[in-house]
Nucleic acid binder design. Sequence first.
DNA 1: TATATCGGTATACTTTGGTATAGTGGTTAC
DNA 2: GTAACCACTATACCAAAGTATACCGATATA
Lengths: 126, 126
Amino acid sequence: MHNKTECSAFVIPIRDCLDILSGKWKLPILGALMEGKKRFKELERSIPNITPRMLSKELRELEINQLVKRTVYDTVPVTVEYEMAPYGHSLKKVLMEMKEWGAQHRKRIMTTDTPIETEELDVVEV
Amino acid sequence: MHNKTECSAFVIPIRDCLDILSGKWKLPILGALMEGKKRFKELERSIPNITPRMLSKELRELEINQLVKRTVYDTVPVTVEYEMAPYGHSLKKVLMEMKEWGAQHRKRIMTTDTPIETEELDVVEV
DNA sequence: TATATCGGTATACTTTGGTATAGTGGTTAC
DNA sequence: GTAACCACTATACCAAAGTATACCGATATA
């Protein structure tokens, strides 16, 4: 990192990646969809405490980024299905790196330091 | 992802990793420190628009997570140096995965879709 | 004597992210 | 007929994150 260009080349793409995963509910939603396709209400039920407003908003962002595919079936009433888009699977490698590092880090902090508070996380029920 | 435990094992460590990199300034700070050790004011100068309040706050969080080492030299006035801690380098692999994915994603979104606005990012000057 | 540097902190403010609550229009089950 | 389900949206509110501005005590420079 020895000049502005090189530095932007570091910050900008990582920021992009972070932004896509940002927000309280993106990870639980992706987690739930990795199991398989789900309808809106199914997602709402499997992600405790999420409001329809947030679910809708976060799904839209994931869809815009082509990670999630939304399909509307012309039934009455309409059926809407969400699933991981093929492109969505490209995230898995990054996610697994983050998961490994995160797990390792939690252990490290727990043992070396005063324990960090494991906050009450809302976690997908399946 | 077929049960609650497995799902927490997905969400929690990734959340941990995300949290550590979260906030507007962590990435620019890490970028600046990857160049080598820097004093407080040097960091402040090399990261445009950061306030001392935020710089101090984010450095403290990075230090707590053992990614950054802070050394105080007993001069008058005191000299304080920040540098990547050895453990900090363990992040590089994750960061590089994110960087690659992010760069690839930006290209993809730019070409397939209506261009995404490249916001005016504050970027480290070196 | 006045000004700048060092490494920050204090206070107040604004902006963004997330929550709470209610409601839409149409359909099916009791 | 009324209650529930579906996939959401609208409005109002609240809390967290970030900004702006000023200041600290000690020292060095003009």
